[in-house]
Design a protein around this nucleic acid. Sequence first.
DNA 1: ATACAAGTTAAAGTAAACTTTAAGTCAAGC
DNA 2: GCTTGACTTAAAGTTTACTTTAACTTGTAT
Lengths: 149, 149
Amino acid sequence: MEYTIGQVAKQLGLSTPTLRYYEDEGLLSGVRRTEGGRRVYTESDLEALRVIECLKHTGLSIKEISDFVKMVSRGDESIPDRLELFRERRDQVKTQQAELAHMQEILVFKCWYYEKALELGSEAAVRALPNSKVPKRLREVRNYLGSFD
Amino acid sequence: MEYTIGQVAKQLGLSTPTLRYYEDEGLLSGVRRTEGGRRVYTESDLEALRVIECLKHTGLSIKEISDFVKMVSRGDESIPDRLELFRERRDQVKTQQAELAHMQEILVFKCWYYEKALELGSEAAVRALPNSKVPKRLREVRNYLGSFD
DNA sequence: ATACAAGTTAAAGTAAACTTTAAGTCAAGC
DNA sequence: GCTTGACTTAAAGTTTACTTTAACTTGTAT
């Protein structure tokens, strides 16, 4: 199957200027053109774009992704470098996941806090609650945050 | 305990200009000053900054955080709004976690892929492997990504 | 008392990742 | 054959979140 820039944009949730921008920045090269100069995306271009989206979502900048693409075009010789890049990414995402889990704890505490405030009629009343009235798993977060809203 | 701007910066891993910038943007108000005009941060300022960091790390922009701070200063009346904000954040982080887990699968696949490529001497050799030679839990990702590097 | 590190302000500068604009070209439907 | 919507380019503009600069003041250590 082959696609126009508009169809690809829709599928990936990107805008058409963004797709052109990615090409300008070297994230995608060798996109075929029609006689009239319009881009024609193949299934394989879509696959490349999916990996690009993955790298983007795990925190790589456009520049770093373009460096990766350059590696790819160096062929098998760059396999060790690419392995290193993906290992780094994998480890970094693990860290990110731990951090996000911590943030989630804070948010869960905050939801409890404001539900209680709504129930009791004021923040002050929630702050005045003894730790024994706070769900066990939220106590640690409460200590970490202190008395702030 | 009370702290200078430099001490706070160190503790939170921010720069001193960033702390001043946050104040300018309304993320933190009422920071006390010495006679000579220097900022004095209290324990409670630190707690506020920890919540700000949490909101930032879960994807809120500076503007959105400043809107939250404005809510706080409206007092108990804004509790329902604040509850809604934290519920939204909590749900959004859950989505983010799912997405990150998906990205992690891709990265784990890529690490396997390049380890295998290193072992076999080329990418082509890995691509040529039948699905039966691919660890079970990685097969789905392999199909999703297709044949791209 | 004096040096100097750390603080102060306002304003300008930066980097990243797009988005918008302007001026046109292409191709599908009537 | 003509309109219209989707495409093309190059260049300028935008937003976000800081950072840097410059000129100055404060407070601590010798």
